[in-house]
Amino acid sequence: MAETFERSETTGSVAASTAMPSDYFELLKPGVMKLVVFTAICGLVIAPGSLHPVLALIAILCIAVGAGASGALNMWFDADIDAVMTRTAKRPIPSGRVSRQEALAFGLTLSFFSVFVLGVLVNWLSAGLLAFTIFFYAVIYSMWLKRSTPQNIVIGGAAGAFPPMIGWAAVTNSVSLESLALFAIIFIWTPPHFWALALFKAGDYEKVGVPMMPNVAGNRSTQNQIFAYSLLLAPVGVLPYVMGFAGPAYGIVSALAGAAFLWFAFRCWRMPSDDAAMVPAKRLFAYSIVYLFVLFGTLILEAALPGLAAMLG
């Protein structure tokens, strides 16, 4: 394991800002934001009750902005290691397009306004959950867990699992077993998703001393844990149908998608631990993203189709 990478307060700083709007947008981690928004929409759409369309749009925008704020704060804190890792070296701060101070101010401002607007215009439970999500990702995960334990992804995965609960709370002003089931799907999905990435990006993490599972426990142990979590994910993914808040279409789709996830995880588990190409791990990582979109997309379609049919009829 490489020595812990020392953070530099000057990494990515510039004498005068040369940032473009696109640079600030990149700070929001739009790729991650898409998944956050999609799962939040799912929680909002399938929750019992209704929310005025304007308030629903405001809720989703606030969740998106809050997720973006988390990304900006993460990039602010991780500017030192981002500059070394090939996957992140071209981000706005390490490339010098945005200073760390600008990113911090941007992230804090977005955090405040996203939580405040959601609380005032929708309800304070959903705003509180959003505030906790931002805090959990920016402080608990980014500042503490990521650099201190190989379980960083397991515990830190909670941050990415809250959005459907926030969407649900925006409509119902409550937290229910159903919303916790949506949380559980993303929470259990996160370790195999990120550890598959870590298998073929282990060199990057090694360079900066981030204790990802392959660097600490080795590839074989990571492959074993990926498969174990995948075995747990397959039945958890069917929970919405079992609990009765999703229909038979979701039951079938989630079961088939879970079986496919297990197949990719099994191929990853069978992969030689010293395989340089890491093709099975790359395929599992790619499919894991599809898996989550398929599950939550099916939930949205099941909830929306009756209303659309009634409008057309």
Rank of each mutant, 00 (worst) to 15 (best):
Ser50His: 14
Gly12Met: 11
Arg91Cys: 04
Lys282His: 12
Ser114Ala: 14
Ser179His: 03
Phe77Met: 01
Pro48Arg: 14
Tyr205Asn: 00
Thr18Leu: 13
Ala127Arg: 03
Ala309Tyr: 12
Val242Met: 13
Trp144Leu: 15
Arg270Ser: 12
Leu118Tyr: 03
Pro306Glu: 06
Ala234Asn: 01
Glu3Pro: 09
Gly237Ser: 08
Phe296Leu: 08
Ala217Ile: 00
Ala169Val: 11
Leu110Phe: 11
Ala310Asn: 10
Thr190Arg: 01
Lys207Asn: 09
Pro214Asp: 08
Ala249Trp: 13
Gly307Asp: 11
Met212Tyr: 07
Phe136Gln: 01
Leu262Cys: 13
Ala56Thr: 08
Leu73Gly: 06
Pro92Thr: 04
Val279Asn: 02
Leu27Ser: 05
Phe136Trp: 14
Glu102Trp: 12
Ser22Ile: 13
Gly71Phe: 09
Arg220Ala: 15
Asp275Gly: 08
Ile289Leu: 08
Phe187His: 06
Ile300Gly: 05
Phe135Thr: 09
Gly247Leu: 10
Ile63Trp: 07
Ala127Lys: 03
Met243Gln: 15
Ala196His: 07
Phe245Ser: 09
Ala276Lys: 06
Val242Asn: 07
Ala83Gly: 03
Ala257His: 03
Ala103Gly: 13
Phe200Asp: 06
Val32Cys: 00
Val122Lys: 02
Gly128Lys: 01
Ser176Met: 15
Ser288Ile: 04
Ala127Tyr: 10
Gly96Asp: 02
Ile153Asn: 00
Pro272Arg: 02
Arg97Val: 07
Lys146Gly: 04
Arg147Tyr: 08
Ala69Trp: 10
Arg220His: 11
Thr190Gly: 02
Ala16Asn: 10
Leu305Arg: 05
Ala40Lys: 10
Gly66Ile: 05
Phe38Ala: 05
Ala281Cys: 05
Thr4Arg: 14
Ala170Thr: 07
Ala161Cys: 03
Ala181Val: 13
Glu178Arg: 11
Ile185Glu: 01
Phe194Val: 03
Leu61Lys: 07
Ser148Ala: 14
Ala259Pro: 07
Thr4Glu: 11
Glu3Val: 14
Leu35His: 03
Asp78Asn: 05
Ala16Leu: 09
Gly31Val: 03
Lys34Cys: 04
Met165Leu: 12
Gly156Lys: 01
Leu61Met: 14
Gly68Arg: 06
Leu27Met: 10
Trp76Glu: 04
Val175Ala: 12
Tyr229Gly: 07
Thr149Ile: 13
Thr39Tyr: 01
Val154Leu: 15
Pro94Arg: 05
Thr172Leu: 12
Leu104Val: 08
Leu292Arg: 00
Ala255Gly: 12
Ser230Tyr: 09
Ile289Asp: 00
Met1Cys: 03
Cys42Pro: 05
Ala198Ser: 10
Glu102Cys: 11
